[in-house]
Design a protein around this nucleic acid. Sequence first.
DNA 1: AAGGCTCATTCACATTGTTTAATTGGCGAG
DNA 2: CTCGCCAATTAAACAATGTGAATGAGCCTT
Lengths: 241, 241
Amino acid sequence: MFGKNLLVRMLDRRDTLPPDEIALIEALPVRPVTFGPDEEIVREGSRPAESCLVANGFAVRNQAIREGKRQITAIHVPGDFVDLHSILLKVMDHSVSALGSCDVVFIRHKDLLTAMGGSPHLTRMLWLSTTIDASIQRTWITCLGRRSAKQHLAHIICELYVRLEIVGLASDQTFAIPLTQAELGDVLGLSVVHVNRTLQELRAKDLVSWKDRRIVILDFQRLALLADFDATYLNLFHEPR
Amino acid sequence: MFGKNLLVRMLDRRDTLPPDEIALIEALPVRPVTFGPDEEIVREGSRPAESCLVANGFAVRNQAIREGKRQITAIHVPGDFVDLHSILLKVMDHSVSALGSCDVVFIRHKDLLTAMGGSPHLTRMLWLSTTIDASIQRTWITCLGRRSAKQHLAHIICELYVRLEIVGLASDQTFAIPLTQAELGDVLGLSVVHVNRTLQELRAKDLVSWKDRRIVILDFQRLALLADFDATYLNLFHEPR
DNA sequence: AAGGCTCATTCACATTGTTTAATTGGCGAG
DNA sequence: CTCGCCAATTAAACAATGTGAATGAGCCTT
């Protein structure tokens, strides 16, 4: 129930959900599961019959490449419909795993298709959810390709703050996320050593404090300026869609 | 008409389109436009009332950042529905421009919504198109973050070959694309100089020949092995969706 | 044929990122 | 309490990539 309300809140922030659509979402049968740190939620190469929604905690998508390297292609926060796209893609080309302890709910594709069957607008709202993910991915591509390590790190901190704030998990320039520096490296495409150096640069400039999985943004204005951060891509505005 | 048939071919490759859905697509009113090299097709920050489909030639999405740098986040080939997502996102967070001369057709969101209104399966097929784009974007993230310049270049060459082959624009290990080394740098997140160096390495290994916008893959097997290329993410299989 | 484009190429050099390895500090298990 | 593990931190040598300036090759225009 917690998971479902979160999804409603995420979607309702982008466009008003009429009561019947909220009812459709809340009536979906769910299978709640808790995963421990680093446990695999969905395996690369599998053909899921259900999609999962983060209710509590964090999940990451990652693509493994040869020689044990991996790249994290997305960080999912509560309310995110992590692998909704598997309803269309069929074969997972990446895996999803828990970052810290993570509660998710699984929803069968069959039930989602039924719910969407009679409601084109609900269908679009779910489509929107995958589209916002894609928008974030484009921004990550730009960060990886054309921003310096320092800017990139600053950018991801701004993004996480904004995304967590709207689900009530960040306030007063502070949030917590169980991300080690090694994992942060897999997000930023950097080595652990360089993540550490870069983090120290931001600390030296009194922009952030990152200690024990708790991040404090000391000066959001300057951090966003450094990162060239513009929240448009997060689509945090209310529109008929 | 050419554009529409190409879209049908792209979708039909992933799942059989029943005749009524093909008819719906072919009945869509289109507005064909030809753009010259580097002309802007859709502007960042705009709120389009139509989406565009590439009929002929190539288009790129790019995100500009401060100081004139830019990152290309997608390359679109004939048959691709470039900015279908604008139907949901409303405000463009990036621009689309022509790569060489490019024929596109614009289709009004209103008409698309009407066509989808009565056909949940058609809706899903269009959703699928944006989802495959997202899948390609994830792979680009991994290339940018965790592959060397050489692997990344090899990867994009493999990807372009496969994508062009299915629309009949590549065969015999050869294809043409009007991409300068500077633009390739904006795709790979590298400087022109380094693109040039990397290209020469691939040439020296007798893997590819790239001359006058014409690429010849001399040994696909070895190139794919070097790039760690696996076409799963392109979703080139036929499934009920 | 001369000039002026664009693109590809080269060089020298600066910057950034990686690798490996050693060190520190916190914290839970026994 | 102490051992051992994990995350974080630091160092130094090295590799990869970026920058800026200059040159060459091809092609179009005049």
